[in-house]
Design a protein around this nucleic acid. Structure first.
Lengths: 342, 342
DNA sequence: GCTTTCTTTGCAAACGTGTGCATGCGTGAT
DNA sequence: ATCACGCATGCACACGTTTGCAAAGAAAGC
């Protein structure tokens, strides 16, 4: 009980065996007698010996760790996805190494290399808002290590993807506002370098076109979705000669910011202004009036990404050229902010 | 460009050097000529070689990975702490392996062993609600691997700790309600197996005593802090012959549940009932009326835990005897739910 | 009793990196 | 010419585990 670390050699000498026998006993190798296995496992149980995953990983060139690279851990959507991924991986004996890029492409690139250094079994990624060059991820594909993108995915980069139906989210939100009578719908969303915002914008455009409502560039804002930016954009659109009667926001933080600003201006919601947010943040149903939002089912999305990753690791998927792209459905949750009657 | 993994040997033969020279060149060893270092680094730059942290970790018995074990990732408090820890560790070249126990002591024990298996440089833990036996953590101390608990910490187990001032939080919350005139203050909180709830309860008791208000056992509920449980406890206390005029809730989810239930009963807030929550969840300031809550500064707490961990790893602060216990202050954020005037 | 077969175990190499020690080379002093 | 010395590099082993192969012993068939 005085050593700092114990190895299979220690228990081998203790039992008068070779370390190979101990290794095989612990791995339930069929050529080892039951008696020996029992002796080994009994001693291991009551000792401070713990399997050294580092040594095993080196020897096998196999790892039980999956990397996860996200822009920010503490956003509601992301932390729920992480929860799901962690639970699902743990079910299958895998661990998770979590890194955050803080939406900086430089940090992202650095972390990709660090994660590769750790010889992880696979990498799951949601990119930064500004990642347009995806070549730093290619090392994983060249090394034949599974790589799965989710939510924020590369534009035209060949890779496995799990994504929400952002086009449909944008389309349904805008259509809903149009059906509620809105004709001047502002769109305050994130930078178009990012896949999800491009798709939502496309849905917004198509819905407008369907209702023969012309797109007014003055009503469209794209920037990082902070509360401050939300208020700035809000000030801009409410200063226009024709005030908007609807807002489709890129997330719920923005929707909340717009709503609070509108309240200050004395604009009645939903009668004078209707608002739709995105992601169905817990705050959306708590605020008054409650905010209509697009549910993305982040837990299910995380599970899908994890399952896809596990399948890729286990080689259950033909390793050839077939790239998998899963789209998880969204659901428009209608609340008071956009409907006179709910 | 056809191999799957490259090693220092590959670039050694490419340059006509030995792998030891390459290793030393990459580590900036002083005995290697600048010319050789440049040649090595140039080739490494343009190749697919990446340092193998697994092999280095085995050779050095040193790791650049810190483990984090939390009950649930996606709670606001925890995900903020994780964000802080990850950022701080990354500043110093360390990575983070995140596991969640889902508040199950069995899973926690299992994960502690898995984390040890990965030969992490240190472990940061917030325990489950029900962990009363902490012996599964001892292996880290016996192996001289830094171990830091935060928030939910062991009762009388010798270990480094970073904790919020839960006693003060409980005391100030209750005192505030008393000062606002409440005399029948319900306390709906988490299981007393968990340190933080014990401390908050002690603060609650002391504040009551200070105002000569007797503790009414019927007003005190301890269970897992879900919304469902909040409503159940709420129903119980509002069915009492003397209705409570104040509620000190163990978290904001509970405070929200109580508030919504009270609204349904037609109880006016804050005039007939005053409510204080805990953790200052983003929802607390958004709901109407906004909820008074205890800010725990989770980002600062995470940073402190990470800094302490890094100090332990680097300085090897004599890990046996001097146990460090840091208490981060709290702040009562007064809002409409508890004050007639704000 | 001898050979074959099966069961159980040990030996030694390998994974990729880091490092103590030895080695070789060039320079300058004696 | 010899020696000492500093500099740059190579050799070989170690970290702890897994695994192909060999081997020893027992059981079984002739």
């Amino acid at each position: 009980m005085k050593k700092l670390s114990y190895t299979i050699k220690d228990i081998a000498v203790e039992l008068g065996l070779s370390h190979s026998t101990v290794s095989r006993a612990l791995n339930n190798h069929p050529h080892i007698s039951q008696q020996t296995k029992d002796r080994v496992k009994e001693l291991v149980e009551k000792s401070d010996y713990r399997h050294n995953a580092v040594a095993a990983s080196l020897r096998n060139s196999k790892s039980k760790m999956v990397g996860l690279l996200v822009p920010r851990i503490s956003m509601y959507f992301q932390s729920t996805v992480i929860t799901a991924i962690q639970n699902k991986l743990h079910e299958h004996g895998y661990n998770l190494m979590v890194c955050q890029s803080n939406d900086s492409p430089e940090i992202e690139k650095e972390l990709v290399n660090e994660l590769f250094s750790s010889r992880i079994a696979g990498l799951i990624v949601s990119t930064t808002l500004y990642t347009t060059d995806f070549s730093h991820f290619d090392i994983f594909q060249r090394a034949n290590i599974p790589l799965v993108f989710y939510d924020r995915v590369p534009k035209s980069h060949p890779a496995h993807k799990v994504l929400g139906d952002d086009y449909q989210g944008g389309y349904l939100s805008t259509k809903h506002l149009l059906e509620q009578g809105c004709r001047h719908i502002a769109h305050i969303s994130g930078p178009l370098t990012c896949s999800i915002y491009r798709h939502r914008y496309a849905g917004y455009q198509d819905a407008l076109a369907e209702f023969d409502v012309p797109l007014d560039p003055a009503l469209v804002h794209f920037q990082e979705l902070s509360k401050e930016n939300a208020i700035k954009a809000s000030e801009a659109v409410f200063a226009l000669p024709v005030r908007p009667d609807g807002v489709f926001a890129g997330n719920d933080t923005t929707a909340i910011g717009v709503m609070q600003h509108a309240k200050q201006l004395g604009i009645a919601i939903p009668s004078q202004l209707k608002i739709v947010g995105y992601s169905n943040d817990p705050r959306a149903e708590i605020i008054e009036p409650s905010i209509t939002s697009v549910e993305q089912f982040p837990y299910e999305m995380g599970e899908q990404a994890a399952i896809l990753m596990l399948d890729l690791i286990m080689d259950k998927i033909s390793p050839g050229r077939n790239l998998i792209s899963l789209t998880t459905p969204i659901e428009l949750v209608k609340r008071q902010s956009s409907c006179l009657q709910v």
